[in-house]
């Protein structure tokens, strides 16, 4: 019953928040309308969802997103320094990072986070979804970069989405 009425609770919350931000008004009417939209849109788009992503630890997701925002702000200064220093000293590299996640949404989030955190852009995912190709702007040690991506971003995502580690 619960699952049929609210197929995607997080999506509903997100839609409600987006509606409230869009009208820029916190009146009771907009809460009701936003709540209705948050209920109706997941219902109407139900047929398009291949499978529902499971978020087992929503609180940890919030913490993870906050950590990522912090990382983006701090490490952007690093990229600014790299851009302004002589280009001879750059050591760009393509690094292959083996992936343990198997959830589509988790992989999308991981690839986006890698692109947003400075110094790395995720360039491609292999067809079997086991390897991610990452381009680094200034890489000292390839293995170290891969290990830091795995421990800092992949491990928390694995916990949040409760992926089977195959």
């Amino acid at each position: 019953m619960m699952a049929r009425c609210w197929p995607h609770p997080l999506l509903s919350l997100f839609l409600l928040a987006t509606w409230l931000l869009l009208v820029n008004d916190l009146g009771i009417g907009h809460w009701l309308l936003g709540g209705f939209l948050g209920w109706a849109i997941p219902q109407l788009t139900q047929a398009f969802w291949v499978r529902t992503p499971r978020v087992s630890r929503p609180l940890k997701l919030v913490g993870f997103l906050l950590m990522v925002v912090g990382d983006i702000a701090v490490a952007n200064l690093q990229v600014a320094r790299l851009i302004l220093s002589p280009t001879r000293r750059l050591h760009p590299a393509f690094v292959e990072v083996p992936m343990e996640l198997d959830d589509e949404l988790a992989l999308t989030i991981l690839a986006s986070v890698i692109t947003l955190t400075p110094g790395t852009v995720s360039a491609d995912l292999s067809d079997d979804r086991r390897t991610l190709l990452v381009h680094g702007l200034d890489v000292g040690d390839e293995a170290e970069l891969a290990a830091s991506i795995k421990s800092r971003y992949e491990a928390p995502l694995k916990e949040i989405f409760a992926c089977s580690t195959t």
């Binding site: 750059l90 050591h91 760009p92 590299a93 393509f94 690094v95 292959e96 690839a111 986006s112 986070v113 692109t115 947003l116 852009v121 995720s122 360039a123 491609d124 292999s126 190709l133 381009h135 890489v139 390839e142």
Partner: peptide, 29 residues
Amino acid sequence: TAPVSAHVLAKAAMQQKLRLHDSTRGKPW
């Protein structure tokens, strides 16, 4: 959206086999 457009552009660039900087290690697929 920024990561999505960066990803699509990177794929397009790899397909077109753009010239790489000399000191780049590793290869695009």
